[in-house]
């Protein structure tokens, strides 16, 4: 069954000053989607997310959202000031800035926040400073902040960038659980094998949409070369595509000949 449309980008172009970051893309997110945007650096992934969030406006075309769509945004953790004096609880309740104005956290807010933290495995950490947490816990605090807003659509910018393998697994499991609970998800990632290949829908972007479909449909040598501008090979392992850097394979072959 096809879900209702949450966000629709029609012929959308976005630019910084006079440089186009995204050119005339048509793209739809429906209820129940779990979409990954992949592409090289500067391909417009973050721009697309920002256009969906409404923090930048298209210079051409338009973005249509379901009325009163609640969105939660998880930025790249590298952009966070970990030295900022805030506790886990303070971070989580921030998203109710427009309704909860006073410094005091209300009983209802505290109950909601503790529930979200417990749900994400962060129970008992509410009074810790954000820097005192592990990489996986830090990532989950920002997911908790987004979830506290009770989003229908969760938007994540590079959720596994700069994290170790264990944290990446934690994040992937967490997102899969949230998706099972009915949250629609869109994320950007560089991580083709560790994250993108596990998602039900992938979009390859390089200013324009190169391909949109399941990982098996999208992760092909032709699409990848067109997207990343470099040769890549694709192996199938356990029914899932595994992307191998073409140049890397070539170097490995030369190295093996040396041996």
């Amino acid at each position: 069954m096809i879900g209702e449309v949450l966000v629709e980008c029609a012929h959308m172009s976005c630019a910084y000053n006079s440089t186009l970051a995204i050119k005339k893309i048509d793209f739809t997110i429906r209820k129940g989607d779990f979409v990954g945007i992949v592409g090289p650096s500067g391909s417009g992934k973050t721009t697309l997310l920002k256009a969906i969030l409404g923090s930048i406006s298209p210079v051409e075309g338009h973005v249509t959202k379901k009325p009163h769509l609640r969105m939660g945004y998880v930025p790249q953790v590298e952009t966070v000031d970990w030295n900022f004096p805030v506790t886990v609880l303070e971070v989580v309740v921030m998203t109710r800035s427009s309704t909860g104005r006073l410094p005091r956290v209300t009983k209802d807010e505290l109950a909601d926040a503790l529930l979200v933290l417990e749900r994400l495995g962060l129970g008992g950490l509410e009074n810790r400073h954000i820097r005192e947490l592990s990489g996986g816990q830090q990532q989950r605090v920002f997911v908790a902040r987004a979830l506290f807003h009770r989003p229908e659509l969760l938007v994540l910018d590079e959720p596994t960038s700069g994290v170790d393998v264990r944290t990446r697994h934690e994040v992937l499991h967490l997102l899969a659980d949230l998706h099972d609970e009915g949250v629609s998800i869109i994320l950007s990632t560089h991580d083709l094998n560790g994250l993108a290949a596990h998602l039900p829908r992938l979009v390859c972007l390089n200013s324009e949409i190169i391909a949109d479909g399941s990982p098996v449909e999208v992760l092909t040598p032709e699409v990848l070369e067109q997207t990343f501008g470099a040769p890549m090979e694709v192996l199938i392992h356990g029914g899932m595509p595994v992307v191998v850097d073409g140049v890397g394979a070539d170097i490995a072959e030369r190295m093996s000949r040396l041996g």
Binding site: L53, S55, T79, V86, S98
Partner: peptide, 20 residues
């Protein structure tokens, strides 16, 4: 005091604050 959370959010994470 009246706009405490907005001030905190805009200081800590202006981009997400705007989106929120």
């Amino acid at each position: 005091v009246a706009l405490y959370r907005a001030f905190l959010f805009a200081t800590f994470d202006p981009e997400v604050a705007e989106v929120s």
